[in-house]
Amino acid sequence: MSLINTGVDSAIAIAERRRGKLGAALFAGRPESVFLRNVYALKSSNWLVVLSGFVEPVFYLLAFGYGLGKLIGGITDASGNPIPYAAYIAPALLATSAMNGAIYDSTWNVFFKMHFGKIYQAMLSTSLGPLDVAMGEIGWALARGFIYAVGFMAVVTPMGLIRSWWGLMAIPAAVLIAFGFASVGMGITSYLKNFHQMDWVNFFMLPMFLFSGTFYSLSVYPDWLRTIIEALPLYQAIAMIRGFTLGYVDGALVGHILYFVVMIVLGLLFTTKRLRALFLS
């Protein structure tokens, strides 16, 4: 057997092709190999756990939208049009589940891979760069977010809760939201040292879920509080998806989208820097 490869498609030849390209030390152009690793891992994992991410927002919708919604009746939008309560909270639940899925993937899963599985250590002893790892992992979180979003839409559309064709845009919007949270979340996770600190993540997530205009309009708040909430990513996410599913497409939507584009870029830079510091310093 020959153990020393001199062929054209050797690992060395592949790595040398990137020489001189921008960011060659950080990025090998193969995030899909990291994604693929997760496909292999999923094949032999517990499918029920995967399914739970889809079921959660549906349960919330049934309990609050229909259970509580019966007591509330309908609400009216800014121009006075009536909206069924379930149709009001469905987009918020989709946004929240996109956030939760991305955060779960980028905190618990990433924490485990970082400290116990030593998966990243192995990946970064190959010719991969930290940006490949970050993008592959985040890409995985997005694929999951996409499937959950499609599933959720498949349930709520027949219920008549999507009130505009713009509602189709809720699916890519959910992916965009997941991207934003996953890219920042992975960087934050790199600072965490033990499982207890993970509770701090939940400590911020739960109030954000409850108070970001998920179940009621921000108009109930005083102005100063409203400004703070509007700056939080979940409010931006909810407003974006709600705009699409209710068909209120205006300039504000562009602002919400830009918010997440910036969050993604900063998050990726932050995470790549952290992975480099942790494994290649």
């Binding site: 790595a15 990137r18 020489r19 030390a25 090998a28 250590q121 002893s125 190959t126 010719s127 991969l128």
Partner: peptide, 13 residues
């Protein structure tokens, strides 16, 4: 040339 060098190496930690 970190990634290039790592392509030349096998690592057994």
């Amino acid at each position: 040339h970190g990634p290039e060098i790592r392509a030349h190496l096998g690592v057994v930690p």
